[in-house]
Each structure stands twice: as C-alpha cells, then as structure tokens.
Amino acid sequence: MYIVIVGGGKVGFYLAKELAESHHTVSLVEKDSATCGEIAKDLNNVLLINGDGCNTRFLDDAGIGRADVVAAVTGSDEVNLMVCQLAKQSSKVKRTVARVNDPKNSHTFNEIGVDVAVDSTSIIAKIIEEEVSLEDLVTLMTFKRGKLALVRVDLSNESPCVDRQVMDIKLPRASVLVSIIRGEDVLIPRGETILQAKDDIIALTAIENEQDLLDVLIGKVPKR
C-alpha cells in the first residue's frame, strides 16, 4: 500500500518505521526542518517531505494522488482534521485515519467525516487504568468503536470452569473463547478442551456481556 503520514513526532516516526518495515511505501510529511533532519538519520526507506501537511503542495510532493491511506498523526487536532479533509476532497483518498489528541474531539471527527479516528489519549488512559486496577478481566482491544472487546481472563484455582470441558461451559450470548494461553503454549479451544487453573483465556465479547462472561469464567462478581 501507499501510505502518506502527516506528523513526524513520536507517533508518526514509529508508524512510518513500522509500515516501511512491513514493505509498504511510506511518505512522511513533517513541518519542522530540525525534526526532519533527525528522522532522516534513522529512516532511509521513507520519502520525507519537509513542509506543512495542510498545504496541498506538500501533500502532492508526498504523492497523495496515489495514496491508498492518509494518516494524520500530529499533536494538533485541527491540523489532523484538515489534512484528512484535504486528502478526501482534493485527492479522493479512500481511507483517512486521524489521531485524536483531545478525547472531546473524538465525536467531532467521526461526525465530520474522518474514516477512522484513533483517540490516543483515551486508549493510553484505558490501558494504564487496566494495568493499575489489577482486575481479573483485561480488555486487550476494542472494535466497532467500543462495542466489541477482546479480553483476557486469568483463571484462578477457584474458577468454576477449571477441569471442565469448553462444551460444558455456558457462555453468555455474543461471547466466544478465542484462545487459551497455557504456560508457553497457545491452544485453540475446542469443545473437548479441558480448562485448567492458571490458564489465560482470550475471549471476544460484546461489551455489555463482559460482566456475564467474567461471572461464568471466574465465578464471582468483582468489586468495582
């Protein structure tokens, strides 16, 4: 894929690096010439453009006309929105992804027509909250704007599921076990798989059934 990234801060830099390593064609637009100089030292398989990403001239230089995706990841929400709109309207880019810095603007981005708004602040806050809270259920990832979640549940010795076959466990609706991590092994659960204490269960579930799933797997209601 041809990907244009606007914003060469930490997010933009690592994104460009990762994507280039995955053999995508990447161009990176960064306003600050000193930052560009730094990036140029580390990334040599990326087309680097020193200029304002809100200026179509620099977007053209970055090859936006043939881009499959544009990702605007600067620290300024108004810039990110502008870049996505320029990409959509002037260059008919199919998919635009914007980083949202202030969670308040997340709704606005979705409303105004950015294809994907990634609310970095909320995501980081959520991850840290989970690490801090030490609960039995850890949300690994959410999909469909938070309606569906991939969660990890660590089975304790007291879990009612220990020593039972997967087929005998009655999961809540819209929940499915995806995999079982047992020590170093990753098992794909089948009906006859028997769960053991200390298994880490990865499950996909609708958010509203998260609590029910936890009740089934752990057998208790954690204090919130």
Binding site: C54, D77, E78, L81, M82, Q85, H107, T108, E111, I112
Partner: peptide
Amino acid sequence: DNDNANIMSGQVAKKI
C-alpha cells in the same frame, strides 16, 4: 488567525 481551527470550528457549528 488559524485557518485549521476556523475550518474545524465552522464544521462543528454547521454539521453538529
């Protein structure tokens, strides 16, 4: 004096 901010504010007013 910031065009990007004006565009964003204008759209919030118009579309939301």
